[in-house]
Design a protein around this nucleic acid. Sequence first.
RNA 1: CGGGGCAUAGCGCAGUUUGGUAGCGCGCACGGUUCGGGACCGUGAGGCCGCAGGUUCAAAUCCUGUUGCCCCGACCA
Length: 560
Amino acid sequence: MRLKSSYFYTMKENVSDEETVSGNLLTRSGMIKKSSAGIYILLPLGLRVIRKIEAIIKEEMENINCTELLMPSLLPEDVFIKSGRRDNFGKNMFALKDRNEKSYVLGPSHEEMFTIAANMKIKSYKDLPINLYQLQTKYRDEPRPRFGLVRLREFIMKDAYSFDKDLDGLDVSYQNMYKAYCNIFDRLGLNYTVVKADTGLMGGFLSEEFQALTEIGEDLLVVCEHCKYSSNIEIATCVDVAVENNEAHKEKELVHTPNSRTIEEVSKTLNEEAGKFVKTLIYKADNSFLACLVRGDRELNEVKLKKLLNIQSLEMASKEDVRNITGADVGFAGPIDLNITVVIDNEVTHMKNFIVGANKTDYHYKNVNLSDFKYKLAADIRNITEADPCPVCGKNIVFKKGIEVGNIFKYGSKYSESMGLYYADSNSSQIPVSMGAYGIGVERCLAAVVEQSNDEKGIIWPMNIAPFKACIVIANTSNERQVEVAEEIYNKLTAKGIDVLLDDRDERIGVKLNDMDLIGIPIRILVGKNIQNNIVELKYRNQKDFIELQYPNGLDEMNF
RNA sequence: CGGGGCAUAGCGCAGUUUGGUAGCGCGCACGGUUCGGGACCGUGAGGCCGCAGGUUCAAAUCCUGUUGCCCCGACCA
């Protein structure tokens, strides 16, 4: 591509509606442009990167015999009603009606559609296994799109689905996909880790996430560097061992704690550490209320709670509900004489003489013990902390932040049963197909790469996905010899099939070099003054110094 | 959905407190001087001050409503 006659622009300053490094660099380098919240234009340069990522994905999919097809974006709402997911997605689905008032949605995910497609082919065990995928635009009306290309409302997803006879078959497909995913993210040049995760909205019984490690990551990952345990915090298990505690059992005592609603406030009022408190969180779980107890300085883990009690919808109770249930203002709830279901965190069972709300405005109880109230069960319902031991080996864990760039699921028969995808085995029995699903967020990969690979000058693309592998900069376009040589190099490399950019703009050299640094082209060939001595200058974006190359021989020997 | 912030030229911002007819830098156009790391001088184009109402002789500025964008949170008990 010749820059002079192409769509290309850069910006010197950061834009105000992007907060992240990647959002800003991609915007400033003219690769993307925000259209509305969570929706972007992919400009020519940005699209080239997207296409390269897609090409890598396609190769790796073909390598494991996964076949591409393309689903529509506009889907009849009925299929989601049939699978039972219409309500799960709720407001996250963009919904619309056609002229005849028939309801459609913009596909947020395509399990149902792939199940329908699979049903056309799969009749017998002889038709299995089968793997299908697509690269297609997904629509999700996220409550809060953010972080540039990280959380989008319209985005390209590679979604693949495996269809097997049984769980053993599924396991083979799953492992193949796992390896393909590692290949893909390796080739993209991402620094990532794989963690166990909640199956969430998609359902099923196993999910692992490929997490690109960056500070702007929205997911908190729990990693043990001793035994390789790694998990999304949402399902990281807390192991609470009873600690030696010789404290004498004391009698509970009502204490006055005016205007002390939060743990922070009460701990100040009573001059006690947060760890001495047990907080009581009132939830509305489906259609009943629930009180959950965790230590004052801990966070409740809603994913664990939902799983534990098989809850569909879980939200904090309203102020009014809390008042009705506890008889006190928000901030003074406690488990004593509370007549709703009480669930306590395992850790609380090891505590003695702790402090809880008194269900009376401006009062707490201190020296409370388990025998002072009733509870339905004790379980692991809190978030793990960095001070907790690894649940597998007991050693130290660390937290990391990640962007979820890929996710793989074992569904089993969840969708095949709801969508009626059965095959005949050798006895002609109808057996539900075992399914797996495998997603990659294409724009997210791009954002994650930029987050991980940049400097004060701009983006540093890995060779595999750079919009161009090399750029040729003409130092002075009014020098005929420089132009001539640059053209020769450009034509030669182009003829070899190498993506190369020719900066033939009539700009000062500084402008051109800075632009090339900003857009992050890995290899730069500068044709300038030294061409008098048949020398061109070669510089790698990720290195500091340039190399003098003899022209033309030095270039001909280079590998791109 | 709750809280906060912002909206003025393509981009970044000032002007709003105290109402008087719009400004700076970058970018863009033209001319000149420059020309190996974002040049300099001069001239110039470009804005319904997010949108809709209202107050006023007069509104970017005050009032009401609305939309969009960003951030924080989705909690605290």
